[in-house]
């Protein structure tokens, strides 16, 4: 397997609670990998461990062959792993363009002097970053909102802006945490189309946590299923859908209600 991201034996304990127990899986180059499971299965914890938001109790996380475990989140992004958040997460007081620019500037680092006093290097960095911004805005259909304050956008647009900020950091792997939550069916369809487009256009690989089964089945090449912090199944969408353990994890919980 040509894995871009390799996770092995990943475990996270909060005191006595084991949120994630010995989970191993991979995300391949160019693929859309789905991470699914009932509420409380440990999906978001898994995201937080991969992105360095939380330290893992044990296990390794390798990205492009390099161990990225224990790095702080801003270092993980530098390695080419960007994430979006479950809620609509933006810089609310800044314009859409400015929001995306703040992500894009990652690829154009400056010294402290240039950051305060400006100069040719700072202007050059900003000019190059703005090219990325224009490209990302166009790909995510946000150009018409470029000058609006992010906090005033509709919920669906804010979620898309969250993806745009991540995309502007030019990641190799984009981690999406429930990108379709709270979107109406039309918006979900549009999002699926858009995601496939940006994957091709930006040479992306995607790891996606999502509850929306129709979306997951439609866009994913590979699916990993978590339940109670453990991996219970993994494989192609059709195989996972027909797996008895997966059906039990989802429907069993429903029956118990």
């Amino acid at each position: 397997m040509n894995a871009l991201l390799e996770i092995s034996g990943l475990t996270k304990r909060f005191g006595g609670l084991t949120a994630l127990s010995d989970v191993s899986f991979g995300a391949s180059e160019g693929a859309i990998t789905g991470l699914i499971g009932p509420n409380g299965a440990g999906k978001t914890t898994c995201f937080n461990l991969i992105t360095g938001t939380l330290p893992a109790t044990s296990g390794t996380i390798r990205f492009r062959g390099q161990d990225i475990g224990g790095l702080s989140p801003h270092k993980v992004v530098e390695h080419g792993l960007a994430r979006t958040f479950q809620a609509a997460t933006t810089f609310p007081a800044a314009t859409v363009r400015e929001n995306i620019l703040r992500g894009a500037l990652l690829r154009h680092p400056l010294g402290l002097g240039a950051m305060v006093f400006g100069g040719a290097a700072a202007r050059d960095a900003e000019r190059k970053a703005r090219q990325t911004v224009d490209e990302v805005m166009e790909a995510l259909d946000l150009t018409e909102h470029a000058h609006r304050e992010a906090g005033t956008l509709a919920y669906g647009h804010q979620k898309r802006l969250g993806v745009a900020i991540g995309l502007a950091t030019r990641p190799g792997l984009l981690l999406l945490d429930e990108p379709a939550a709270g979107l109406n069916p039309d918006e979900v369809d549009r999002f699926a189309t858009m995601l496939k487009e940006i994957r091709t256009r930006f040479g992306l690989s995607v790891l996606i946590v999502e509850h929306h089964m129709r979306l997951i089945m439609r866009i994913c090449d590979h699916i990993v299923v978590l339940d109670h912090g453990e991996k219970i199944a993994e494989g192609a969408p059709e195989a996972v859908r027909d797996d008895p353990k997966v059906i039990e994890a989802y429907l069993g919980a429903d029956h118990a209600k």
């Binding site: 992105t51 938001t53 702080s72 989140p73 801003h74 992004v77 530098e78 960007a82 994430r83 958040f85 997460t89 933006t90 810089f91 609310p92 007081a93 800044a94 400015e98 620019l101 703040r102 992500g103 500037l105 990652l106 400056l110 402290l112 240039a114 950051m115 305060v116 006093f117 400006g118 700072a122 960095a125 900003e126 969250g162 900020i165 991540g166 502007a168 950091t169």
Partner: peptide, 25 residues
């Protein structure tokens, strides 16, 4: 007006997003 101010604003508005956009908060 410089890039440092942009970083400051990003950290002030949304610390978690700033960090995950590559800003060493």
């Amino acid at each position: 007006r410089g890039q440092l101010g942009r970083r400051f604003a990003a950290v002030e508005e949304n610390l978690a997003l700033a960090e995950s956009s590559g800003i060493p908060t």
